[in-house]
Computed example of a mutant assay.
Amino acid sequence: MSGILYLCATPIGNLEDITYRVVRILNEVDLIAAEDTRHSIKLLNHFDIKTPMTSYHEFNKVDKAKYLVGELLAGKNIAVVTDAGTPGISDPGEELVKQCIEAGIKVVPCPGAAACINALIMSGKPTRRFCFEAFLPSDKKERALVLEDLKDETRTIIIYEAPHRLLKTVSLLLETLGDRKVSICRELTKTHEEMIPTTLSGILKLYDEEDKTPKGEYVLVIEGKSYQEKKEEEISKWEEMSILEHMDYYLNQGIQKKEAMKMVAKDRGISKKEVYKECIQED
């Protein structure tokens, strides 16, 4: 009988945020797969956990996952931990889970802290609908594609960023999305935890005027584009052509005149009477 893979969330700052369940699981499993054993040993020592560890990180995630799957199939129970937060979120745990599922191994989440959720709930931004982008891609072309997709995103957007890339990323977001409202969260659950409600341009101004150097891990919670703004943008695109040109656009697709008039009126946010009047004048 194969063992179980436990995904154990660890504190993102305050050590008191670990759960009783995670401490118990880390004590009971046969092995702990840690993103950075040098970092995780501090956590284990704090809770007097003696379970052996092995490294499992971005650079060995595929081959090491195969090894760990083998150990699980042999009956060992293994816990995977990231440096901070929930395994599988912006870390190599995702690959291990995928291989375990393919091998028919049971995967059990042991929930706890996640920076993205903590930032969202303290941001003051809408929480019902949100998208999590984690770190933007390092590849320039791929990053541009992601940013272009986010331009019309109506959900609240959550992005992680390292301090040395913060201002460059904010500049790119400002250039692509416009000057959106944003809550910038830093050092969550740590001594110097900070949340500043501002705008994308306000972030740049803050660090420029105060000559501050970004420090700590950042989470940006950005407002989505409003439906009203999207509607106004769509209408403005149609207004670049005349009503008659707009009619021809649909008529040339074989759409009946009466239906085309309805579609033109809807596109432009005007009444069918206005479209009809313009068409009568032309006739």
Rank of each mutant, 00 (worst) to 15 (best):
I89G: 03
I89Q: 03
S90M: 05
S90D: 09
S90K: 04
D91M: 03
P92V: 10
G93N: 07
E94I: 14
E94F: 15
E95G: 06
L96M: 08
L96W: 09
L96S: 04
K98V: 12
Q99F: 13
C100D: 00
I101F: 07
E102R: 11
A103E: 07
A103S: 12
G104I: 09
I105N: 05
K106N: 10
V107F: 00
V107G: 00
V108Q: 11
P109I: 01
P109A: 04
P109K: 13
G112M: 03
A113Q: 04
A113N: 01
A114P: 05
A114E: 06
C116T: 14
C116S: 15
C116K: 08
C116R: 09
A119H: 07
A119F: 06
A119P: 00
L120V: 10
I121A: 10
M122W: 13
S123W: 15
G124I: 07
K125G: 11
K125P: 10
P126S: 11
P126C: 08
T127S: 10
T127G: 04
T127K: 05
R128C: 12
R129N: 14
E133H: 07
E133M: 09
E133Y: 08
A134W: 11
F135V: 03
P137I: 00
S138T: 14
S138W: 11
D139N: 15
R143M: 00
R143V: 00
A144V: 04
L145H: 12
L145G: 00
L147C: 05
L147F: 02
E148I: 06
D149Y: 06
L150T: 02
L150D: 06
L150S: 02
K151Y: 07
K151M: 02
D152E: 15
R155F: 02
I157R: 01
